[in-house]
Design a protein around this nucleic acid. Structure first.
Lengths: 154, 154
DNA sequence: GGCTGTTAATCAGGGCACTGATTATTTCAG
DNA sequence: CTGAAATAATCAGTGCCCTGATTAACAGCC
């Protein structure tokens, strides 16, 4: 008898927001390339030659997920993986020509989709929307790595 | 050369927000019961005897996902499934005593977690946060079913 | 009664996301 | 130089999430 109103639960709202986004992405951007895959491509356009771990850090994907995403992109020929001659643990990642083309094409469509997605909000509201979400997400991520104590006494 | 700033992409932000939430949920609420599972329990506290499809509608889970979530809750003995004598296609869902107890316990913890999660925002900002996300999500969901028999405000 | 269409649930298949354990390589202390 | 800690990547296991196809049951129409 003590049911809660889920519309005041940020986690629930975040999930619904993501689902709504997924729906729109699928219809307006691509059924092949997903949003996380696009994020990886985008990062490698900006910084070619990153390793897997760093890519994950940039786009907010953990080590396992980023490995799967990269393996899919590689399988589709959008990405090249080369062993780092300087450090045999690492793979250096780089877009193929096809990867670059795909990124360019999706960038346009993504911009269009974002417009539709955010259409219910005024320009000022959109700014607030980004700001609030970013602040909440950043703060929660900060809780994971509490300020590293410089003087360690473990 | 034409990399995009992902912090102005609502889909990317939604994903990051959900990940941050997941992290906090795991540490502050439960490692056993997930947020979607809690949403299902919560719905059945409010409306016992719903069928699977309706539960999915209430919490925003599609038919396949809701089936998995319910099967997990049933396996843990938090939920009972009974064939509807009125309609042999349906299963009627109801919490067990253990399910009710679990829901009660998690309700308290969830409230605490939400406070921590939203702490970076002032009270007014929290209201805006809910409002903006809800409006965007609702609008996008509305695009899926263009012409529904709208119940325009009673 | 039988046809047809709809609906609840399941199944097959793909992708995202996390944790904990393992492997290979590098780095650093002694 | 050598063994121990750290690091990049992979693997195993679980759970969420979606679409499209299938199965079983209901409902209306002739």
């Amino acid at each position: 008898m003590a049911a809660v109103d889920l519309t005041t639960h940020p986690g629930h709202l975040a999930r619904r927001l993501q689902q709504a986004h997924h729906l729109l992405w699928n219809t307006m951007v691509s059924e092949e390339i997903t949003s996380p895959q696009f994020a990886v491509l985008n990062t490698l356009v900006a910084e070619p030659g990153l390793d897997q771990r760093t890519v994950g850090e940039r786009v907010g994907l953990d080590r396992s997920t980023v490995a799967e995403v990269i393996s899919r992109l590689t399988r589709r020929g959008l990405l090249d993986k080369v062993r780092d001659p300087q450090d045999g643990r690492r793979f250096l990642l780089r877009l193929t020509d096809d990867g670059v083309r795909t990124h360019r094409k999706l960038t346009v469509r993504t911009a269009r989709m974002n417009q539709v997605f955010l259409a219910p909000l005024s320009a000022e509201e959109q700014t607030v929307f980004f700001d609030l979400i970013l602040r909440v997400a950043d703060a929660a991520e900060g809780l994971r790595n509490p300020a590293e104590p410089l003087v360690t006494q473990a």
